[in-house]
Amino acid sequence: MFATRVLRQAAAHGAERTPMIRFIGKRSVPSQVDHSPQPHPASPTGSLPSGNGNSHTSFSSYRDAAQQHGPLRKSIGNTSAAKLGPVEPPRGMYWDRNELPERFRRSPLTLAEIEAIETGGAAMFG
C-alpha cells in the first residue's frame, strides 16, 4: 500500500512494517494447470465424485467402475498378459480383422462413396 510504503521508506531505523496489500504485477496466464480431480473446497466430506480416478484406492476398484463404450468387463483384465500366450500368431496362421471388435474392422463403403471414388470425385458434383 502506498501510504505505508512511504512510511516504511521514511523509517530510518528498525521495526519496519510491511504493507499487506501489494501489487503483484501483470496478470499472467498459468502455463500448466493441474486438472486432476481435487475435492471441492466447500464439500463437507472432502470426497470426490465416485467413478473419478482419484477416488479409487486400487486399480481393481477403478476397473470395477470404469466405463469405455459401456462398462469395462472385469474379465478382460483379470488374467495377466503373459498367461494369454504370444501376441504374434503361430507360423501359417493369421489374425483376421473381421473377428476383432467392431470398432477395429473396416467400415463398409456406401454406394455413393464407391461411385465417388470410381469417378475420382466427379460424381459428387454431377
Partner: peptide
C-alpha cells in the same frame, strides 16, 4: 450434486 474443485461431476 457431488462435484470436484473444477465443478466436474463424475
Amino acid at each position: 450434486v457431488v462435484i470436484d474443485s473444477e465443478y466436474r461431476t463424475k
